[in-house]
Write a protein that binds this DNA or RNA. Structure first.
Length: 672
RNA sequence: GCCACCGUGGCUUAGGGGUAUAGCACCUCAUUGGUAAUGAGGAGGUCGCGAGUUCAAAUCUCGCCGGUGGCUCCA
């Protein structure tokens, strides 16, 4: 007999040789819903045989571990299906990922259209209720099993010591090299959906074979799969690239260039409101606004270190016309030109990849004393970076973007307080926008590395300041060793949107490097020159990415203060035109953004059309309203209220805008 | 940058060797309608760009540009 300790502490006795599955059924009943077991803290198959005393718990599909196992098993099922339809395909690796699973195959390219047939085959195999059997093999036998698959052999070479064995999992006549654990039967994998087909390099190495990668989803129940698919639909609807078009927020024109955002009037309003909001808080926090140009001399970036070190991710430099002509006359090739710029023989201008060198020069333009510090220079500064073409996407990955940037020049003693001040700003913004779901990453130096600049003692202090600041937020935060920039520790903000995707937005970075490179100084109270510390911070990251994320966060339904047109005034009949003009005028007078539709379409049609642009309110005007000097309001969700005195509406609306209320709330819902 | 797929009026889209569908939006006329599509008419496209094959190319081929999904990269 062996003793098995259950999670609640009870100890049951069983005959040795009993399986996890039997123990779990005994302890939790037949409908235990467990996909696997945890034996002495280690994940195991349900079929695992117990021969000695242990602790045991079940792993349900609802848990992260359970989903991981389910997805992993589904990847196997996918491979089985693919091999049965494409016998010459070679399976390589197929891990679970955050939202599903994938499997990479060495095979001829397939298309999205081929996925249906593969999915059908998966369902067929799932229905066969094939047991997944774990088989331990010695290395010789393993190699025999995979002798026709060089990818698996490479894995064996890499992962196993000489002579070391491993396991395969077998289902029907198909098997795969795998450590497991897995679900007990393919019947647990009924609710799969293949989502996309793509390519990947073997082991992520561009120089190696291109593989076909198939992505899929799996859920434990039909309803869960439905819900996941619905969530994906929702994500698609919220896609800022689609909403940006529908709501006329921005435009990207191939003739202007890839990754270059044209802010159209409606989008520009959203951006301007956000900038005004942040500017207000910057003034309150003692920042000084500055403006700097979009280009600077190569020498500046040689000093800062941006050129030529980061050359590959920048637009190529600009060269003055006279110099260009002269060099051309001398028969200078492009390669010569590039080399001469690199060596510093000739100068040119660069589109700025960062704002800091310009701000540093503002600091350096005067002699500074400790009495001037901290100096906080803020600018919505536009920078340009040469992102790889395949990486560019909508507003979230672009080549030109405007950072809500600022650089703080502080004394060593002020560092902790100033980092805290930066954090406070982030908190205010996220709170106001209802972005409660975010986490903070504190990037620390790798203790084993010597790539960092600056004195270790100062680093320790700066790292402590970052930790303390992150702690002060009261949200989830993590320390990540080795994630610091070479010039200082940093705090990154990662926002989770409503559908669970994460976006890296703002950042606060301590910098010991630039003050050194530019030989920045201030006169201390001791009369001696000291080196200031810099803090780079951009709480939104970039206006482009932030607005892109915001569009998706709100699903295009911006709060009243942000929404491009706050009220759309709609008339019922032609004779209400005059009153509509009066109402619109009064609203404009109060600073409200308003649009009027007094066309002769009927009211139903007009409502339908104007809803599309998602104003906070539709203001509907007919006989009753005109006679009593009131308005009738319709909210986005269709709720309505009639007979609101115009003056009350204007007062309430102004208040809502002023307060930056997260959701338009001037139309009470009928249930309240 | 690499791979696969895609590119038809402002938007959504049919077609797939004989210069092109439809809906929405737009304009005109009629209609004056109380909370998600009134009716009729009209205008708008050298089918991403450039070459090639062909009597004939939106359609086939090649190159380029752009988009999507991945890979790789990201101060």
């Amino acid at each position: 007999m062996i003793q098995v300790t259950m999670p609640d502490g009870t100890v049951n006795e069983y005959a040795a040789g009993i399986t996890c599955s039997e123990v779990i059924t005994d302890a939790f009943g037949k409908k235990h819903g467990c996909l696997a077991a945890r034996v002495d803290g280690v994940e195991r198959d349900l079929a695992t045989v117990l021969n000695k005393p242990c602790s045991l718990d079940g792993i349900k599909a609802a848990s992260a571990e359970g989903m991981y196992i389910l997805r992993h098993s589904a990847a196997h099922l996918l491979a089985q299906a693919v091999i049965s339809l494409y016998p010459t395909a070679l399976p390589t690796i197929g891990p679970p990922v955050d939202r599903g699973f994938y499997y990479d195959f060495a095979m001829e390219p397939i298309t999205q259209g081929d996925l249906k047939a593969i999915e059908k085959k998966m369902h067929e195999l799932a229905r066969k209720n094939l047991a997944l059997e774990r088989i331990e093999l010695d290395q010789t036998s393993l190699r025999e099993h995979f002798e026709s698959n060089p990818y698996k052999l490479e894995i064996i070479d890499d992962k196993l010591e000489a002579g070391e064995g491993s396991t395969i999992y077998k289902q029907g006549d198909w098997y795969d090299l795998c450590l497991g654990p897995h679900v007990s039967s393919t019947s647990k994998l009924m609710f799969v959906r293949l989502t996309s087909v793509s390519t990947a390099y073997w082991r992520g190495d561009q120089s190696r074979e291109q593989l076909v990668r198939i992505y899929g989803l799996v859920e434990p129940t039909k309803d869960a799969l439905k819900a996941t698919l619905a969530r994906m639909e929702e994500a698609k609807k919220r896609d800022h690239r689609k909403l940006g078009k529908d709501l006329q927020l921005f435009h990207i024109d191939e003739e202007v260039g890839q990754g270059l955002i044209l802010w159209t009037p409606r989008g520009a309003i959203v951006r301007q409101e956000l900038q005004d909001f942040i500017s207000h808080h910057l003034r309150r926090q003692g920042y000084s606004q500055v403006f700097t140009p979009h280009i600077g001399k190569l020498d500046l970036y040689r000093t800062s270190g941006h050129f030529p070190y980061y050359q590959d991710s920048q637009y190529p430099p600009l060269v003055e016309r006279d110099l260009m002509n002269k060099l051309a006359d001398e028969g200078c090739s492009c390669g010569d030109l590039s080399n001469m710029m690199k060596s510093g023989e000739i100068d040119g201008y660069m589109l700025k990849p960062m704002n800091c060198p310009h701000h540093v020069k503002i600091y350096a333009s005067q002699a500074r004393s400790y009495r001037n510090l901290p100096l906080r220079l803020a600018e919505f500064g536009t920078v340009y970076r040469w992102e790889q073409s395949g990486e560019i996407s909508g507003m979230t990955r672009v080549r030109g973007f405007t950072q809500d940037d600022a650089h703080l020049f502080v004394t060593e003693d002020q560092l902790a307080d100033e980092v805290l001040g930066c954090i406070e700003l982030v908190q205010i913004i996220f709170d106001k926008l209802g972005m409660e779901d975010y986490r903070v990453r504190v990037g620390l130096r790798d203790p084993d590395s010597s790539k960092y600049v600056g004195d270790p003692i100062r680093w320790d202090k700066a790292e402590d300041a970052c930790r303390a600041a992150a702690q002060s937020l009261g949200v989830e935060w993590s320390e990540e060793e080795g994630e610091a920039a070479f010039y200082g520790p940093k705090i990154d903000f990662v926002v989770k949107d409503v559908i669970g995707r994460e976006w890296q937005l703002g950042t606060v970075q301590v910098d010991y490097n630039l003050p050194e490179r530019f030989d920045l100084t201030y006169k201390g109270s001791d009369g001696v020159l000291h080196r200031p510390v810099m803090i780079h911070r951009a709480p939104f990251g970039s206006m482009e990415r932030f607005c892109g994320v915001l569009i998706e966060h709100f699903g295009g339904r911006f709060p009243t203060w942000l929404t491009p047109t706050q009220c759309h005034v709609i008339t019922i009949r032609e004779e209400h035109k005059a009153y509509a003009g009066q109402v619109a005028e009064a609203l404009k007078e109060a600073g409200v953004r308003v649009e009027v539709d007094d066309s002769d379409n009927n009211i139903m049609k007009k409502i339908r059309n104007h809803r599309k642009l998602q104003p906070a309110y539709l203001v509907i005007l007919g006989d009753e309203e005109a006679q009593s000097n009131t308005v009738s309001l319709r909210a986005r969700n269709g709720d309505q209220v009639a007979g609101v005195p115009l003056q009350d509406f204007i007062a309430d609306l102004s208040n809502e805008i002023e307060q930056k209320t997260p959701v338009p709330s001037l139309v009470p819902s009928p249930s309240e």
